[in-house]
Simulated scan of single mutants.
Amino acid sequence: MKEALSPQNIRNNIRHGKHDGNTSGYANGFVQGNIVILPKEWANDFLLFCQRNPKPCPLIGMSSEPGDFLLTEMGQDVDIRSDVPQYRIFKDGLLTEEVKDITTYWRDDLVTFVLGCSFSFEEPLIADGIEIRNITENKNVPMYKTNIACKSAGRFSGNMVVSMRPMVVADVIRAIQICTRFPSVHGAPVHFGAPEEIGIENINVTDFGDSVTIKPGEIPVFWACGVTPQVALEQAKPPFCITHSPGCMLVTDIPNSKLSIM
């Protein structure tokens, strides 16, 4: 695991430009969140998309009012404009740039959604003795587009994005048991074994994140991923929206234990 800092200290480092990379392995014990920020006239459709697709889009929080950039339910002094390592700016469905702060882009009509992230269940997997290769190799988790269709909602539709962690078969069984307890951070894997069955042609070529080593005797294990909304946004083409950059999450003050089912 990475340096043991509190969630507030991590956010402070991010806010002041001292951390601008992925957050996998940070904030041991605390929930991390994917971010989607949309104009209010698009918010209801996206909320319905999350409700219909809880595996890739497990909603754990949202802004109380349009234009509210302080997410008090997510933690102390959480400012969504500055507390994510990197953001993506989309215009008419096209990615136009990646930035480290969105204060100058902020508008009074923007609504923020926070979705659970798989980084939160990496901790209990590691505690059970299961190696998480992206953490071992100090990389961002591998992510892939798939042929698994999401349920449409209003203007939003698209296929699921998945994250991947290689494991031996015995660890896959244990990972399913552990992750089932965490439905708010994607829950159990959606597929394991043959990647081509879910539309992944080359496991060594990622759509997001970094490729990791798959050792002899290991199989790829796939979880629903919170980058899924970015594919839906590209298809829906809202005039303006903001997301986190893949792997660069909002670190919250919410303990993982609050989202687990024991």
Results as ranks from 00 to 15, higher is better:
Tyr87Asp: 01
Asn22Tyr: 11
Val141Tyr: 01
Gly33Pro: 00
Val162Gly: 02
Val190Gly: 13
Ile10Trp: 03
Asp253Ala: 03
Leu38Ser: 00
Met143His: 01
Ala149Trp: 00
Met1Asn: 08
Glu201Phe: 10
Thr104Trp: 11
Tyr26Pro: 00
Ala149Asp: 10
Cys50Tyr: 10
Lys2Met: 12
Gly187Ala: 08
Thr146Gln: 00
Ser82Val: 15
Ser82Gln: 15
Thr112Trp: 09
Ile89Gly: 11
His186Glu: 10
Arg107Lys: 14
Asp101Gly: 08
Arg181Pro: 05
Glu65Ile: 14
Lys55Trp: 06
Arg174Ile: 09
Met143Tyr: 02
Arg107Ser: 08
Glu218Val: 00
Ala127Val: 08
Tyr87Gln: 04
Gly116Asp: 07
Asp253Gln: 09
Gln86Thr: 14
Ile132His: 10
Pro189Asn: 08
Asn28Met: 08
Val78Met: 12
Glu196His: 15
Phe46Trp: 02
Met62Cys: 12
Val31Asn: 04
Gln235Glu: 13
Phe240Lys: 03
Val172Lys: 03
Gln235Arg: 13
Met74Ser: 14
Val190Trp: 13
Met160Trp: 01
Lys215Asn: 11
Arg81Val: 13
Phe192Pro: 02
Asp20Cys: 11
Asn28Thr: 13
Asp210Phe: 09
Glu41Asn: 14
Gly93His: 02
Leu38Asn: 00
Pro255Ser: 00
His186Asp: 08
Val185His: 06
Val111Ile: 13
Val227Arg: 08
Pro166Val: 01
Ala149Asn: 07
Val185Arg: 05
Asn13Pro: 04
Gly158Leu: 02
Tyr144Pro: 00
Arg81Gln: 15
Lys215Ala: 09
